[in-house]
Simulated assay, not measured.
Amino acid sequence: MMELVCPAGTPAALRAAVEAGAHSVYCGFSDETNARNFPGLNFSTEELTEAVAGAHKRGAKVLVALNTFPRAGGEKLWHQRLADAEAAGADAVILADVGLLDYAATHHPRLRRHLSVQAAAANPDAINFYAETFDVKRVVLPRVLTVQEIAEINKEIDAETEVFVFGGLCVMAEGRCSLSSYATGKSPNMNGVCSPASHVAYAEEGNELAARLGGFTINRTPKDRPAPYPTLCKGCFTSENQTGHVFEDPVSLDARHLIPALAKAGVTALKIEGRQRSRAYVAEVVRTFRAAVEAVEEGRPMPEGALARLAEGQAGTAGAYAKTWR
Protein backbone atom coordinates (compact mmCIF):
# COMPACT_ATOMS: atom_id res chain seq x y z
CA MET A 1 0.00 0.00 0.00
CA MET A 2 1.25 3.48 -0.82
CA GLU A 3 2.19 5.44 2.29
CA LEU A 4 -0.09 8.36 3.14
CA VAL A 5 1.99 11.30 4.45
CA CYS A 6 -0.16 13.88 6.21
CA PRO A 7 0.34 17.40 7.61
CA ALA A 8 0.51 18.28 11.28
CA GLY A 9 0.89 21.95 12.12
CA THR A 10 0.06 21.40 15.80
CA PRO A 11 0.03 18.51 18.28
CA ALA A 12 -3.78 18.42 18.01
CA ALA A 13 -3.61 18.17 14.22
CA LEU A 14 -1.02 15.40 14.51
CA ARG A 15 -3.30 13.38 16.75
CA ALA A 16 -6.22 13.99 14.38
CA ALA A 17 -4.17 12.83 11.37
CA VAL A 18 -3.04 9.65 13.10
CA GLU A 19 -6.54 8.83 14.33
CA ALA A 20 -7.92 9.41 10.82
CA GLY A 21 -5.53 6.87 9.30
CA ALA A 22 -2.28 8.60 8.40
CA HIS A 23 0.62 6.21 7.86
CA SER A 24 3.04 9.10 8.48
CA VAL A 25 2.77 12.70 9.58
CA TYR A 26 5.18 15.53 8.92
CA CYS A 27 5.75 18.51 11.18
CA GLY A 28 8.35 21.10 12.15
CA PHE A 29 9.85 22.98 15.07
CA SER A 30 8.60 26.42 16.15
CA ASP A 31 11.28 28.41 14.37
CA GLU A 32 12.70 29.24 10.95
CA THR A 33 14.13 25.76 10.38
CA ASN A 34 10.90 24.74 8.65
CA ALA A 35 8.98 26.28 5.76
CA ARG A 36 5.78 26.89 7.73
CA ASN A 37 7.17 29.26 10.35
CA PHE A 38 3.92 30.93 11.45
CA PRO A 39 2.75 32.03 14.91
CA GLY A 40 0.67 29.35 16.61
CA LEU A 41 2.05 26.53 14.48
CA ASN A 42 4.69 23.85 14.97
CA PHE A 43 6.26 22.01 17.90
CA SER A 44 8.55 22.56 20.84
CA THR A 45 11.10 19.83 21.54
CA GLU A 46 8.94 18.51 24.36
CA GLU A 47 5.80 18.48 22.21
CA LEU A 48 7.62 16.64 19.43
CA THR A 49 8.92 13.97 21.80
CA GLU A 50 5.42 13.39 23.15
CA ALA A 51 3.89 13.42 19.66
CA VAL A 52 6.37 10.86 18.32
CA ALA A 53 5.68 8.51 21.22
CA GLY A 54 1.92 8.83 20.69
CA ALA A 55 2.16 8.29 16.94
CA HIS A 56 4.38 5.24 17.35
CA LYS A 57 1.87 3.68 19.76
CA ARG A 58 -0.70 3.82 16.94
CA GLY A 59 1.73 2.53 14.32
CA ALA A 60 2.34 5.85 12.56
CA LYS A 61 5.65 7.49 11.67
CA VAL A 62 6.73 11.09 12.26
CA LEU A 63 8.83 12.98 9.70
CA VAL A 64 10.40 16.28 10.79
CA ALA A 65 10.77 19.04 8.21
CA LEU A 66 14.02 20.99 8.47
CA ASN A 67 13.53 22.17 4.93
CA THR A 68 14.66 25.79 4.91
CA PHE A 69 18.14 26.96 3.96
CA PRO A 70 20.37 27.93 6.91
CA ARG A 71 21.59 31.51 7.07
CA ALA A 72 25.32 32.15 6.95
CA GLY A 73 26.51 32.19 10.53
CA GLY A 74 23.25 30.73 11.81
CA GLU A 75 23.81 27.06 11.02
CA LYS A 76 23.94 26.03 14.67
CA LEU A 77 20.16 26.32 15.02
CA TRP A 78 19.61 23.84 12.19
CA HIS A 79 22.31 21.55 13.60
CA GLN A 80 20.63 21.61 17.02
CA ARG A 81 17.27 20.78 15.49
CA LEU A 82 18.73 17.74 13.78
CA ALA A 83 19.91 16.51 17.17
CA ASP A 84 16.52 17.34 18.69
CA ALA A 85 14.67 15.40 15.98
CA GLU A 86 16.84 12.34 16.50
CA ALA A 87 16.51 12.54 20.30
CA ALA A 88 12.72 12.76 19.96
CA GLY A 89 12.67 9.51 17.98
CA ALA A 90 11.73 10.96 14.59
CA ASP A 91 11.55 8.38 11.82
CA ALA A 92 13.12 10.72 9.25
CA VAL A 93 14.09 14.33 8.62
CA ILE A 94 13.13 16.22 5.47
CA LEU A 95 16.05 18.36 4.27
CA ALA A 96 16.76 20.67 1.32
CA ASP A 97 20.11 22.35 1.92
CA VAL A 98 23.21 20.54 0.63
CA GLY A 99 25.32 21.63 3.60
CA LEU A 100 22.70 20.44 6.07
CA LEU A 101 22.39 17.13 4.24
CA ASP A 102 26.15 16.67 4.53
CA TYR A 103 26.09 17.57 8.24
CA ALA A 104 23.23 15.14 8.88
CA ALA A 105 24.95 12.30 7.01
CA THR A 106 28.18 12.92 8.93
CA HIS A 107 26.87 13.59 12.44
CA HIS A 108 23.54 11.72 12.44
CA PRO A 109 24.12 8.78 10.07
CA ARG A 110 21.36 6.64 11.61
CA LEU A 111 18.72 9.35 11.11
CA ARG A 112 16.87 8.59 7.88
CA ARG A 113 17.07 11.42 5.33
CA HIS A 114 14.37 12.51 2.89
CA LEU A 115 14.94 15.20 0.26
CA SER A 116 12.48 18.08 0.56
CA VAL A 117 10.48 19.40 -2.37
CA GLN A 118 12.31 22.65 -1.61
CA ALA A 119 15.40 21.13 -3.21
CA ALA A 120 13.49 20.95 -6.53
CA ALA A 121 15.20 17.73 -7.68
CA ALA A 122 13.21 16.85 -10.79
CA ASN A 123 15.38 14.50 -12.84
CA PRO A 124 17.27 11.21 -12.30
CA ASP A 125 20.73 12.79 -12.30
CA ALA A 126 19.85 15.23 -9.51
CA ILE A 127 18.04 12.61 -7.44
CA ASN A 128 20.82 10.03 -7.80
CA PHE A 129 23.36 12.66 -6.73
CA TYR A 130 21.52 13.17 -3.44
CA ALA A 131 20.99 9.43 -2.96
CA GLU A 132 24.62 8.51 -3.63
CA THR A 133 26.24 11.46 -1.86
CA PHE A 134 24.06 11.81 1.23
CA ASP A 135 22.28 8.43 1.36
CA VAL A 136 18.90 10.08 0.81
CA LYS A 137 16.24 7.37 0.96
CA ARG A 138 13.28 9.31 -0.44
CA VAL A 139 12.76 12.37 -2.60
CA VAL A 140 9.66 14.56 -2.53
CA LEU A 141 9.15 15.45 -6.18
CA PRO A 142 8.35 19.03 -7.27
CA ARG A 143 4.83 19.69 -8.49
CA VAL A 144 5.98 20.24 -12.09
CA LEU A 145 5.97 16.65 -13.39
CA THR A 146 3.44 14.55 -15.27
CA VAL A 147 2.62 11.02 -14.14
CA GLN A 148 4.54 9.64 -17.13
CA GLU A 149 7.60 11.73 -16.24
CA ILE A 150 7.43 10.38 -12.68
CA ALA A 151 7.27 6.83 -14.02
CA GLU A 152 10.37 7.43 -16.16
CA ILE A 153 12.25 8.93 -13.20
CA ASN A 154 11.41 5.92 -11.02
CA LYS A 155 13.02 3.60 -13.58
CA GLU A 156 16.38 5.35 -13.22
CA ILE A 157 16.79 6.13 -9.52
CA ASP A 158 17.70 4.24 -6.37
CA ALA A 159 15.37 6.07 -3.99
CA GLU A 160 11.72 6.18 -3.06
CA THR A 161 9.50 8.92 -4.49
CA GLU A 162 6.82 10.93 -2.70
CA VAL A 163 4.37 13.18 -4.55
CA PHE A 164 1.75 15.74 -3.56
CA VAL A 165 -1.88 14.78 -4.14
CA PHE A 166 -3.91 17.45 -2.31
CA GLY A 167 -3.63 20.99 -1.02
CA GLY A 168 -1.97 24.25 -1.93
CA LEU A 169 0.03 24.75 -5.09
CA CYS A 170 3.07 26.92 -5.70
CA VAL A 171 3.56 28.69 -9.00
CA MET A 172 7.35 28.41 -8.73
CA ALA A 173 9.55 25.35 -8.82
CA GLU A 174 9.77 24.79 -5.10
CA GLY A 175 12.78 26.36 -3.50
CA ARG A 176 12.93 29.10 -6.13
CA CYS A 177 10.29 31.64 -5.02
CA SER A 178 11.27 35.30 -4.73
CA LEU A 179 7.87 37.03 -4.85
CA SER A 180 7.09 37.06 -1.12
CA SER A 181 10.70 37.86 -0.29
CA TYR A 182 10.58 40.90 -2.59
CA ALA A 183 7.36 42.24 -1.05
CA THR A 184 8.06 41.61 2.63
CA GLY A 185 11.77 41.04 3.09
CA LYS A 186 10.98 37.59 4.49
CA SER A 187 12.13 34.65 2.39
CA PRO A 188 9.92 31.53 2.27
CA ASN A 189 13.02 29.44 1.68
CA MET A 190 15.18 30.92 4.44
CA ASN A 191 12.83 32.43 7.02
CA GLY A 192 10.20 29.76 6.40
CA VAL A 193 7.27 32.09 5.81
CA CYS A 194 5.36 32.97 2.65
CA SER A 195 3.15 36.07 2.71
CA PRO A 196 3.50 36.50 6.51
CA ALA A 197 0.43 37.72 8.37
CA SER A 198 2.49 40.47 10.03
CA HIS A 199 2.75 42.15 6.61
CA VAL A 200 -0.94 41.78 5.66
CA ALA A 201 -3.34 44.73 5.77
CA TYR A 202 -6.93 45.31 4.65
CA ALA A 203 -8.52 48.69 3.89
CA GLU A 204 -11.98 49.79 2.81
CA GLU A 205 -11.77 51.98 -0.28
CA GLY A 206 -15.10 53.07 -1.64
CA ASN A 207 -17.19 49.97 -2.30
CA GLU A 208 -14.18 47.68 -2.29
CA LEU A 209 -11.93 46.00 0.26
CA ALA A 210 -8.27 46.20 -0.67
CA ALA A 211 -5.97 43.40 0.51
CA ARG A 212 -2.30 44.31 0.72
CA LEU A 213 0.96 42.49 1.38
CA GLY A 214 3.99 44.56 2.34
CA GLY A 215 2.31 47.67 0.99
CA PHE A 216 1.46 46.09 -2.37
CA THR A 217 -2.22 45.82 -3.27
CA ILE A 218 -2.84 42.17 -4.14
CA ASN A 219 -6.64 41.98 -4.45
CA ARG A 220 -9.68 44.26 -4.55
CA THR A 221 -13.06 42.71 -3.84
CA PRO A 222 -16.59 44.13 -3.35
CA LYS A 223 -17.39 44.61 0.31
CA ASP A 224 -20.12 41.97 0.20
CA ARG A 225 -17.74 39.24 -1.06
CA PRO A 226 -15.12 37.25 0.88
CA ALA A 227 -11.68 38.80 0.67
CA PRO A 228 -8.90 36.31 -0.17
CA TYR A 229 -5.68 36.15 1.81
CA PRO A 230 -3.13 38.30 -0.08
CA THR A 231 -0.69 35.68 -1.33
CA LEU A 232 1.32 37.34 -4.08
CA CYS A 233 1.30 34.59 -6.68
CA LYS A 234 -2.49 34.22 -6.35
CA GLY A 235 -3.31 37.90 -6.54
CA CYS A 236 -5.08 39.81 -9.29
CA PHE A 237 -2.89 41.91 -11.58
CA THR A 238 -3.30 43.91 -14.77
CA SER A 239 -1.27 42.81 -17.76
CA GLU A 240 -1.82 43.99 -21.34
CA ASN A 241 -5.10 45.67 -20.39
CA GLN A 242 -6.48 42.49 -18.80
CA THR A 243 -6.95 42.04 -15.07
CA GLY A 244 -6.96 38.60 -13.47
CA HIS A 245 -4.88 35.88 -11.84
CA VAL A 246 -1.73 36.33 -13.92
CA PHE A 247 0.46 33.84 -12.05
CA GLU A 248 -1.88 31.27 -10.50
CA ASP A 249 -5.58 30.78 -9.81
CA PRO A 250 -6.59 30.43 -6.14
CA VAL A 251 -7.39 26.72 -6.38
CA SER A 252 -6.08 23.55 -4.72
CA LEU A 253 -4.41 20.47 -6.08
CA ASP A 254 -6.67 17.40 -6.04
CA ALA A 255 -5.09 14.37 -7.68
CA ARG A 256 -7.15 11.72 -5.93
CA HIS A 257 -8.35 10.30 -9.25
CA LEU A 258 -4.70 9.78 -10.27
CA ILE A 259 -3.83 7.49 -7.35
CA PRO A 260 -4.05 4.28 -9.47
CA ALA A 261 -1.78 5.82 -12.12
CA LEU A 262 0.69 7.05 -9.51
CA ALA A 263 0.81 3.58 -7.96
CA LYS A 264 1.53 2.10 -11.38
CA ALA A 265 4.25 4.73 -11.87
CA GLY A 266 6.07 3.36 -8.82
CA VAL A 267 5.35 6.14 -6.33
CA THR A 268 6.00 5.12 -2.72
CA ALA A 269 4.16 7.84 -0.82
CA LEU A 270 1.34 10.34 -1.31
CA LYS A 271 1.65 13.70 0.42
CA ILE A 272 -1.13 16.02 1.59
CA GLU A 273 -0.28 19.72 2.00
CA GLY A 274 -1.82 21.70 4.85
CA ARG A 275 0.18 22.34 8.00
CA GLN A 276 -1.62 25.67 8.36
CA ARG A 277 -5.01 23.96 8.33
CA SER A 278 -7.27 22.98 11.22
CA ARG A 279 -7.39 19.53 12.77
CA ALA A 280 -10.94 19.11 11.40
CA TYR A 281 -9.67 19.77 7.87
CA VAL A 282 -6.77 17.39 8.36
CA ALA A 283 -9.01 14.62 9.71
CA GLU A 284 -11.49 14.80 6.84
CA VAL A 285 -8.89 14.92 4.09
CA VAL A 286 -6.87 12.09 5.63
CA ARG A 287 -9.93 9.86 6.02
CA THR A 288 -10.86 10.45 2.38
CA PHE A 289 -7.42 9.64 1.05
CA ARG A 290 -6.93 6.64 3.35
CA ALA A 291 -10.15 5.14 1.95
CA ALA A 292 -8.95 5.83 -1.58
CA VAL A 293 -5.52 4.27 -1.00
CA GLU A 294 -7.06 1.16 0.54
CA ALA A 295 -9.48 0.81 -2.36
CA VAL A 296 -6.66 0.96 -4.89
CA GLU A 297 -4.62 -1.57 -2.91
CA GLU A 298 -7.57 -3.98 -2.83
CA GLY A 299 -8.51 -3.47 -6.47
CA ARG A 300 -11.84 -1.79 -5.66
CA PRO A 301 -13.23 1.38 -7.25
CA MET A 302 -12.22 4.45 -5.31
CA PRO A 303 -15.03 5.87 -3.17
CA GLU A 304 -16.54 9.15 -4.19
CA GLY A 305 -15.55 12.07 -2.00
CA ALA A 306 -16.56 15.68 -1.56
CA LEU A 307 -13.32 17.55 -0.92
CA ALA A 308 -14.09 20.56 -3.11
CA ARG A 309 -15.47 22.56 -0.18
CA LEU A 310 -12.13 22.14 1.60
CA ALA A 311 -10.12 23.33 -1.40
CA GLU A 312 -8.85 26.86 -1.86
CA GLY A 313 -11.44 28.75 -3.86
CA GLN A 314 -13.58 25.61 -3.44
CA ALA A 315 -12.13 24.36 -6.72
CA GLY A 316 -9.59 21.71 -7.61
CA THR A 317 -7.03 21.12 -10.33
CA ALA A 318 -4.74 18.30 -11.44
CA GLY A 319 -2.00 20.89 -11.76
CA ALA A 320 1.11 19.89 -13.65
CA TYR A 321 0.13 16.20 -13.59
CA ALA A 322 -1.99 16.93 -16.65
CA LYS A 323 0.08 19.81 -18.14
CA THR A 324 -2.79 20.75 -20.43
CA TRP A 325 -0.84 23.82 -21.58
CA ARG A 326 1.60 21.65 -23.50
Rank of each mutant, 00 (worst) to 15 (best):
G185L: 14
E298G: 05
E304C: 00
P228A: 05
L213G: 01
V267C: 06
V267T: 03
G206P: 07
T221K: 12
F289G: 02
R300E: 15
R287N: 06
C194Q: 03
A291N: 10
N219D: 15
C194M: 10
L213I: 00
T243R: 12
N207H: 08
A269P: 06
V193Q: 05
V251W: 12
V267M: 07
P228K: 02
A203T: 07
L307E: 06
P250N: 06
V267Y: 11
D249N: 13
H199N: 14
R309D: 08
A203S: 08
A311M: 15
A210M: 14
N189Y: 05
Y202I: 09
E205Y: 07
A311I: 08
F289L: 00
I259A: 02
G192C: 02
N191P: 02
L213T: 04
P196E: 02
A291C: 01
E240T: 07
T288H: 06
S195C: 13
P301M: 03
S198P: 06
V200P: 01
P222E: 03
H199P: 03
R277P: 11
E298K: 12
P222S: 04
A227E: 10
F289H: 01
D249I: 13
L270I: 07
T288G: 04
E284Q: 12
C233D: 05
V200F: 09
A227M: 14
V193M: 05
Y281Q: 02
T288W: 07
R275T: 10
R309K: 15
V251R: 09
V293K: 01
A291I: 02
P222G: 07
R220A: 03
E208P: 02
T288I: 04
E294K: 11
F289I: 03
A265T: 00
E240N: 11
A255T: 03
P196Q: 01
E294S: 08
S187I: 09
R277Q: 15
A197S: 10
A295G: 04
N241H: 13
A311L: 14
S239G: 06
I259Y: 00
G244R: 00
T221C: 05
R309M: 14
A183L: 15
Q242I: 11
D224F: 11
L307K: 06
P260I: 00
E298I: 09
A292P: 02
A283R: 07
F216Q: 03
V251F: 13
E248A: 09
H257A: 14
A197D: 08
N219W: 15
M302E: 05
E240M: 13
V251D: 04
G244E: 04
G305S: 08
A269S: 12
E205N: 05
S239E: 11
E240W: 14
M302V: 10
Q276T: 12
S195N: 12
